[in-house]
Design a protein around this nucleic acid. Sequence first.
DNA 1: CTGTTAGCGCCTTCAG
DNA 2: CTGAAGGCGCTAACAG
Lengths: 340, 340
Amino acid sequence: MKRHQVTIIDIARKLNISKSTVSRALTGHPSVRPETRQSVMDLAESMDYQRNMLAINLSSSQSKTIGIIVPEFVTSFFPIVIMGAQEIAAEAGYSVLICQSNETYETEVVNARVMLANRVDGVLISMTRETKNFAHFEIFKRKGIPMVFFNRVCHEIEAPKVVVDDYEGAFKATEHLIFSGKERIAHLAGPPSLYISRKRLEGYKDALRKHKRPIIDELIISYDLNLENVKIYIKYLLDLPQPPDALFAVNDPTAIEALKVIREHGLKIPEQIAVVGFSNDYGSALIEPGLTTVAQPTRDIGRVSAQLLLDQINTDSSFWKPITRVLKTELIIRGSSQRG
Amino acid sequence: MKRHQVTIIDIARKLNISKSTVSRALTGHPSVRPETRQSVMDLAESMDYQRNMLAINLSSSQSKTIGIIVPEFVTSFFPIVIMGAQEIAAEAGYSVLICQSNETYETEVVNARVMLANRVDGVLISMTRETKNFAHFEIFKRKGIPMVFFNRVCHEIEAPKVVVDDYEGAFKATEHLIFSGKERIAHLAGPPSLYISRKRLEGYKDALRKHKRPIIDELIISYDLNLENVKIYIKYLLDLPQPPDALFAVNDPTAIEALKVIREHGLKIPEQIAVVGFSNDYGSALIEPGLTTVAQPTRDIGRVSAQLLLDQINTDSSFWKPITRVLKTELIIRGSSQRG
DNA sequence: CTGTTAGCGCCTTCAG
DNA sequence: CTGAAGGCGCTAACAG
């Protein structure tokens, strides 16, 4: 059983003053006699008084909390983004409420209700792969709750977005392979439904075009990101009459799977086939050979998103602008594409 | 400016009934006429009504939130623990409030106040390295707020604790090397100041003793976990008149560094020298050969801790027991110690 | 079954 | 400078 927590009324009674005065003293209101304030402060201290945020939240009808909806916690990407956001939020005195949608639309809808129920002051969202209907997000808009999309953004809703420059990252990765003398560069792409897949594919193609290389359709495979199938695709590519001499994979897990399959095939990396991934996951530096990859500023995604959200929270909604912040990527070259 | 959120009063007025009835209908109270309930539900739905947790929390004087205080977010360890805890909390309808102490005692004290102010229903704690004074934790006890320590536990406070069995993990790892026929097993240990280093060293020694192997001092090196120096220690070991034929490293990063150095030396792994690490970091499966290691159930640490906390929250404090849950480690055998 | 009333703990006018 | 009173939105005890 929880024992009675000390309230401003308790300390008001002991001091024979009104709770309003105590409240004012505690919140630093100017019109309180210094001695009064001091005695209040002292007593509060000695009684272990803690202001009750629940009550403050209710009466101010703001929760000082921002919500975050992410699709999964399987990879370390989202935890790191969240930690970045949490840092910024904490600095501003905000808490963070985390929900994971499990890549399921239905769960995402439930998550949105949780956010609403908790009266979050704003919400950070990275959508599931399957979200096609956005009514649950429109509600935030209708209620005047600011939101910021990151990573898996929603183009159908007008709101600030934080993404990395997938196009440029893919472009740089592909160009790097071209500069390394590779002629037949394959691309194991993600599903076209995902914006980032499309952008990375585009960057890949444009790099080829820029350097007057042909775009060979049989070397471009789009898949559902189910890692189990990577093996099949790679085998298919390696068994082509003219197999590729380089592979640009849509992300690091894919590239790492590919690396393993290629190794089993006994091909020399990078001489016979070079491999480049995307996102610089934790493992890419450890695998042998190290995986060349496009690094995303993961923690910064969280920090920038949170900052954008706080900006909106502290601004009248008529001034909100749906700016899109595009964070730069960095190509990290390792042994999978270049002999060290 | 936030627009007015719809409340039970709004829907009560529209239906010409009292807010109590609306409340009862919404919370599924049995004594409400089905038609009444239905009309309330329908109207609530069509008005996008969302119950206001802030108000519910205040009136029930519980926040349905558990707090977590962790020292840092630099490694992926704590984020993963947190995600594990978050999963369990979410299932039980609890939110999670996260604070990081930055390995600083002062910050930890502030974190504790934040938890109090937010009226968390319970708190999960992993202490900073420098925490020697525990008054800020005693407050929780005094206020009847349950706590559970994990990983960096506080032996001075009576509360449930969740740790992994470092001793047993090290014992199993060493025994595995002995069973593999290794005779001179080196141990690259962590600093004696760390509890886990001592426990792992102890496990290593006891395994040797159990199997009547000598404990050879020159094969035991304790270091500060600064990876840059691993190379030096490994070289030293390999250059001994009687070099080791196996190495048990205090953690995976150390083992992986060692693996690299050994490879450069041209020694065959595991024939000439086997290597075992500790913690099953993400990279240990990726490196070639795969690293044999002692897996810690990181996510489970979070899950078990959260469950223990929820158990306390839902139990009268007179029944609380300061049990210590020691999670089992699991030896994962890969190519670095055994030919596949 | 339903309405009335009284809090939960704090902040915020409105009067002194 | 300080006190009294009302309200934030909901739940719960007490009458009907």
